[in-house]
């Protein structure tokens, strides 16, 4: 009898700790979110007061972003054709400035898709303006 009592007294009380540990585990499982890797693209803003960027210079590319389509120097194109054109132009001179004019009606993803293609082509100097 006396041996058993001594054994019982020596046991560490684990139940409460296990409860807390499981609660912590459940908390972390519930609140855990898959990490979303973001990508950033630096763009140049128009200078304050500038109504529009000059677009008639030969070393400037002007791309317009509309809802569902794009134009390159005034010519209407789909995204894949635009990508091909941009790749070709970047091979000639990837340092040239790209003026991107975005329609207010266009979606943000359409701008991101264009920026993505410009990055793929190798253009670094991107200016984003709003199409008035």
């Amino acid at each position: 009898m006396s041996i058993r009592r001594t054994e019982e007294q020596m046991e560490t009380p684990m139940s409460a700790m296990i409860d807390v540990v499981f609660l912590l585990l459940i908390f972390f499982i519930v609140t855990h979110k898959e990490e979303q890797v973001e990508a950033h693209m630096a763009i140049n803003l128009p200078a304050p007061g500038a109504a529009s960027a000059p677009s008639n210079k030969p070393n400037l590319l002007e791309v317009h972003v509309y809802n569902t389509f794009y134009t390159l120097n005034g010519k209407q194109l789909g995204l894949d054709t635009l990508e091909e054109k941009l790749l070709g132009l970047a091979m000639l001179d990837s340092d040239q400035t790209v003026i991107i004019k975005v329609s207010r009606e266009a979606f943000q993803r359409e701008l991101v898709e264009l920026l993505d293609r410009c990055q793929k082509a190798g253009f670094k100097n991107l200016n984003v303006l709003t199409l008035k």
Binding site: K33, Q36, V37, E38, A39, H40, M41, Q108, R109, L111, V112, E113, L115, D116, R117, Q119, K120
Partner: peptide, 15 residues
Amino acid sequence: DDKVKLAKSTYLEPV
């Protein structure tokens, strides 16, 4: 903001 679902990009530099 968890309510913002970003547009997807393949070639932009991951941060």
